[in-house]
Amino acid sequence: MRQTWTSLRKPWRTFWDAHSTLRRALYPLIWLPTGIVFTQFFYTVKSVSGRSMQPTLNPDTSPWRDLVLFDRFSIRTLRKYERGDIVALASPIDSKLLVKRIVALGGDTVKTLPPHPDAEVRIPPGHVWVEGDEPFHSEDSNTFGPVPLALIDSKLIWIVWPQQRFGPLLTPSEPDPKAPRGPSWRLEKAAMERAQWRNSRVTTVQQRLSPPDELDTEVVV
């Protein structure tokens, strides 16, 4: 056993001693696991495709796909879900990753948009209502209903590219009425109006934490 081990180890050693450049080039790869776990638990950069979040993401004026920074820490570890957050979630109907905005949380009542059969929906506990900012090019809760919180993967916090929109994602606020009314002012105003319209369709309730139920066979990790 020991002999086989040494006989295997020797050519391995001689190989790496002979190719020091290769060794130096490949050495950083041993830190790959740490890097992957960092992206799984903290931050990750992804590009957004599709027009369902227009005009917040991928606006028509931009020739590129948006490159954005997602925060997994506040979702996976802190479990902070708020109305108005843009999140990445696995689609319940084909498991692909979607980028949508949280409109309502568990317990809220939402006025739905056309594809949905009911006029109003009460969100069950542990679920959220997600919608795209562009209601007509979006496959969202209006087609598949409320989604469980466990499908939410990460939260969008920063736009990395294109450069003119580089910066954190801000919550929309009323633009200064005295400022000159240029295109950026109008964009800000439109974003504010969309947020108000979104909020007007939701009847919120104070969140109640339900006591943990013991009727599960839980896998303790």
Partner: peptide, 10 residues
């Protein structure tokens, strides 16, 4: 668990 995202159930 669809009710509590921090639990893995079987």
């Amino acid at each position: 668990s669809p009710l509590d995202p921090s639990r893995i159930v079987c």
